[in-house]
Structures are given as C-alpha cells and as structure tokens.
C-alpha cells in the first residue's frame, strides 16, 4: 500500500517536472511569435501577452526597411548548407567504402588517424584558414564554406560503423563478376544500401552548416553574401535597438522554418541523436 502511494507521488513529480521543462522549451519561442505581432509600445508596457496583436505587417515593414534581408540570407544559407551536405555525405561514404571494402596496407592506420582528427575544431585553425583564403582572393566565395565538408572525419566514422555489418562482400563480388566497375558498384549498390544512415547524417550536417556562425562571419564581408546566422546577428545592432517588435519578427522569421522542419523530421532526428551516442 505504502509502496503504491510512493510510486503515485513519484509519478506526479515526474509529470510536473516534465511539463515544466516542456514549457521552458516552448515559452521563449511562444513569447517571440506573439511579440512579433505586437508594437514596441505594447511590448514595453507588458512584455508578455498570451494573445497576438495586429502589428505584424508594420513590424515586417520596419524590419525590411533596414539592412535585414531574410530572403537573401535564406537563399545563401540554402546554397551553402546543401552544397556542404552533398559533399560531406558523398565523400564520407566514399572514404568509408575505401576503408571497409578494400584491404590495403594503410587501412588500419588511416582509420586510427580519422578517429584522431575527429575532434579538431574548425575554429582553432581559423586564422590560418582565413589567411590562406585571403591570399587566393576567395573570401566571399561560397566554395570555401562548402569544400571543407569533403573531409568530415566524424561522418566517415559513422558511415564505416554502419557499413561494416550492412554491406556484404558477396554482393560486391557478384557485381564484379558481372563486369561492373568499382565506382559503378559504389554508386549503384553501396550508396542505396547506405540510405538510412545517409538520411540521418544529412539532416545533422545540414543543420550544423545552417547554424554555423563563426566561419561565415570571418569569411563573408559582402552584405549580399550574408548567411542566415549573420543576418540574425544584425538584429543585435544599434539600428534595431528600440524596435522590439521587429526584432522579435526577425527572429521569428528565421526560427519558424527550422521549427516546422524539426517537427516534421523529429522522429528521425531523435533516433539519429541516439545512434550518435551508441557509437561511443
């Protein structure tokens, strides 16, 4: 009896904590969306309102009247993130395939090497990277943000772990007997088998490229080339200091697409995160 009561109390505590945390996750975004439709005066009087107001279009007009250009940032981020994701996914699979299928002399050392460089952060090498890019006059060139994705050690690691059990040597042998070339086998047989792994890794690569602030902030100086995070950072500037409503609007415009995509893909994303942990 006592035990039953204890677990009931525990259950209540669990739900209270979880609901509180859920509200904590949603509230900032809810306040943001509501305030995006309110005027600066309304926000100054009461910073929180449960109901939207009618100043949405006005806030958008003020927002776009200054240097904020979300459509442009959206397109730029889309180009960079898509390019980086395609490069990372294709070449990581290629490298993993080289490590799994062929028996070559430096196979083991090369894999150890990939594990060793997995943690090297791009930020630390930024001064040298910037100087290199500056010398070849490639700042403001999206390729410098896309091509480095070809060497994504952690994705190679993940793809190899997935490929080892799922790609059987018999299929490859059979294809070879049928006269298929090595690249044909990789593109037409190995890549389709890797689809589930590609899907989760592509989502994460895309999101981290989309959210990256540091590298684009260093390399891109041309306003027309700004990515979404740089565009967002403009909202912190003096020109929007007194325009609370339009700052919320600017933030909402950048967040909403992400939230919608997240809610659609949440199942894959959560299981992808879980997989990332198991590799450890």
């Amino acid at each position: 009896m006592n035990n039953k009561r204890g677990s009931l109390i525990l259950k209540v505590i669990i739900y209270v904590v979880c609901v509180f945390l859920a509200i904590l996750s949603i509230a900032p975004f809810y306040i943001m969306i509501i305030n995006a439709t309110r005027s600066t005066v309304q926000i100054q009087q009461h910073a929180i309102s449960l109901l939207p107001s009618t100043y949405m279009m006005k806030n958008i007009a003020i927002l776009l009247g200054k240097s904020f250009n979300p459509a442009n940032g959206f397109v730029n981020s889309l180009i960079i993130s898509t390019g980086a994701t395609l490069c990372a996914v294709y070449f990581s699979n290629m490298t993993a395939y080289g490590l799994v299928v062929y028996n070559w002399r430096f196979r083991r050392p090369f894999f150890s090497f990939i594990m060793a460089i997995m943690m090297i952060p791009a930020q630390i090498t930024m001064i040298g990277f910037y100087q290199m890019v500056y010398r070849i006059h490639m700042t403001n060139n999206f390729l410098m943000l896309i091509l480095p994705a070809i060497a994504s050690p952690s994705m190679v690691f993940f793809m190899r772990q997935y490929m080892l059990p799922s790609l059987s040597m018999e299929i490859i042998q059979a294809a070879r007997i049928d006269g298929a070339g090595e690249f044909y086998i990789f593109n037409r047989i190995a890549m389709p088998i890797m689809k589930p792994a590609i899907a989760t890794q592509a989502i994460f690569c895309f999101v981290s490229s989309w959210n990256n602030l540091f590298t684009p902030l260093v390399l891109l100086t041309d306003q027309k080339k700004y990515t979404m995070p740089i565009m967002v950072s403009l909202l912190r500037g003096d020109i929007y200091k007194t325009e609370y409503g339009s700052v919320y609007m600017g933030l909402a415009l950048t967040v909403l697409p992400l939230i919608v995509v997240y809610l659609i893909l949440s199942r894959y994303i959560i299981s992808g995160v879980a997989l990332g942990g198991v590799k450890g």
């Binding site: 945390l21 859920a22 996750s25 949603i26 900032p28 975004f29 943001m32 999101v207 989309w210 959210n211 602030l213 979404m228 995070p229 740089i230 967002v232 950072s233 909202l235 912190r236 700052v247 933030l251 950048t254 967040v255 992400l258 939230i259 997240y262 809610l263 949440s266 994303i269 959560i270 995160v273």
Partner: peptide, 18 residues
C-alpha cells in the same frame, strides 16, 4: 523528448539574441 531536444536544433545566434 522532442520538446526537450528542440532548443538544440535552433540556430545558436538566434537563441542568443532571443
């Protein structure tokens, strides 16, 4: 799980300014 993980997917720059 979906709600607890959500803040992680949002651009950190946006979170900071929000």
């Amino acid at each position: 799980k979906v709600l607890f993980y959500m803040p992680n997917i949002i651009t950190a720059a946006t979170v900071a300014i929000l």
